[in-house]
Design a protein around this nucleic acid. Structure first.
Lengths: 142, 142
DNA sequence: ATGCTTATGAGAACCATTCACAACTGTAAA
DNA sequence: TTTACAGTTGTGAATGGTTCTCATAAGCAT
């Protein structure tokens, strides 16, 4: 037999099946792409990358699968200003984003203080935070 | 002669002209609508309201004018989750938004602490904040 | 009032995303 | 391993919000 498939693929396969989601070639390809992406690609970019692994993937399936993965908490969808949604795997801990307005670069950051303040503010107004969106559109200091 | 036009209209007219923007019936209508809106209407809603004042306003003009007004800092455009952009006049002081995920209601809040924290975080990473987006998607506490 | 320039309405065009549907394919059971 | 069924897929059309095109209309400085 030829060299076995990677551990990663096996793990993803198992994870999918456990979630009751059918394991298809297209989904394996997309999950592979997401797993090694360390940027914040949009659906078209993910489609391009996935096609290199599994040429039959259609854009519609990319969108469909991303929605499925979002619902099951595997990926996060971000809608930054300008252009379409961008995605990232959610296995890291929660963070917010700085967007470099000049370069388009995305930087992640995390602040417990801000998280706490948000909860506090909501609480004072009689609400509890379900989720939030915090984006800092910034310019490099010189 | 008939009773003169309202002060408000005269003021808006003057403000527009000063900005080098031509004063048209459509723009007067839209500005009037924006001035008395205390909610966060979208373009279609603004169009409907403006038509009651000036029936000839087209949706395209509403969008065009909103862009003009946004560029000149008169209105702010918000893109909350789900649905199109929503607008509000910017003559009040800066604030962020709580979105009630059940009712869709928009509540405004302001926190100097959070503003300061944001600046601090950006500064530590070598950036300065140009503008930001902070939305708390909340549910009423019971 | 005149002329130049900007604004407008109508509808087409756009773009990201979703949908409809017939063909296909995992998966579990036989 | 074959079968059978429900979940998935690719294609292309549809959608919804927003912008564009272009011929016509109308501000505004003179």
């Amino acid at each position: 037999m030829m060299a076995g498939e990677s551990d990663r693929t096996e793990k993803m396969t198992a994870a999918l099946r456990k979630a009751g989601i059918r394991v298809t070639r297209q989904r394996i390809a997309l999950l592979g792409v997401l797993a090694e992406a360390d940027d914040h690609p949009d659906a078209v970019e993910l489609h391009d990358r996935a096609k290199r692994i599994e040429p039959t993937v259609s854009l519609a399936t990319v969108y469909r699968t991303l929605s499925v993965l979002e619902e099951s908490g595997v990926v996060h969808r971000h809608s930054f200003k300008g252009g379409g949604a961008r995605f990232e795997t959610s296995h890291e801990e929660h963070h917010d984003h700085i967007l470099d307005v000049d370069t388009g670069e995305v930087i992640e950051f995390q602040s417990d203080k801000i998280e706490r303040l948000q909860d506090e503010i909501a609480r004072e107004l009689g609400y509890e935070v379900v989720h939030h969106r915090l984006e800092l559109y910034c310019r490099k200091k010189r």
